[in-house]
């Protein structure tokens, strides 16, 4: 399989692309990893992002982008195999371990990540972070959810609203 111009990692040196964060930091990364982003995929397929050009990402800061790329680099090989139907149980377990650890981070970082994953259309990452936030909510009372998600204590008005809600939606509090 000869594809010297657009080597995708199957032969010889992998093609690299450059991504530029909102605070002007340049990240050089394998095209296959960056292509996990549906948004970037087309640009990359068109040959963009190579050499000195780089693809500017005005909505993603460098700290978030480095985290996003950490995810993409880890998941790129499996994605290249079409969701890795042939992946061994060990590979899958390793990815799962990585994912669990990956989202074990500060909440504001989680939200930055899900915003970036949304903008860049990285489905797996969106799903992973959404699941993590959902897990923090599960089975909790509104008051506990408030505390977990770092909301300030409710005002008397909000408290009254919460009480009314509990009466109105009794079945959801069983």
């Amino acid at each position: 399989m000869a594809a010297p111009e657009s080597g995708d990692g199957n032969n010889g040196a992998a093609r690299m692309v450059t991504l530029i964060s909102s605070d002007n930091t340049r990240f050089e990364v394998e095209a296959a990893a960056a292509s996990l982003s549906q948004t970037l995929q087309l640009t990359i397929l068109d040959g963009g992002g190579g050499g000195g050009d780089g693809i500017p990402l005005p909505n993603v800061d460098s700290a978030t982008l480095s985290k996003v790329l950490e995810y993409c680099i880890k998941h790129a090989p499996a994605a290249a195999n079409g969701g890795a139907p042939n992946a061994t149980a060990v590979d899958r377990a390793e990815l799962e371990r990585f994912d669990n650890e990956f989202v074990n981070i500060d909440q504001s970082v989680l939200y930055s990540l899900i915003m970036a994953a949304h903008n860049l259309e990285i489905e797996g990452l969106q799903s992973l972070v959404a699941k993590k936030v959902a897990d923090m909510i599960k089975g909790k009372s509104p008051m506990e959810i408030r505390r977990t998600l770092g909301f300030p204590d409710p005002t008397p008005e909000e408290q009254a609203e919460m009480n009314a809600h509990m009466l109105e939606y009794g079945w959801a509090y069983e």
Binding site: A130, I145, Y169
Partner: peptide, 13 residues
Amino acid sequence: KLELLSDAVRTCV
């Protein structure tokens, strides 16, 4: 991602 609808209801308040 919340499997139970009741979790979503309690979150939306």
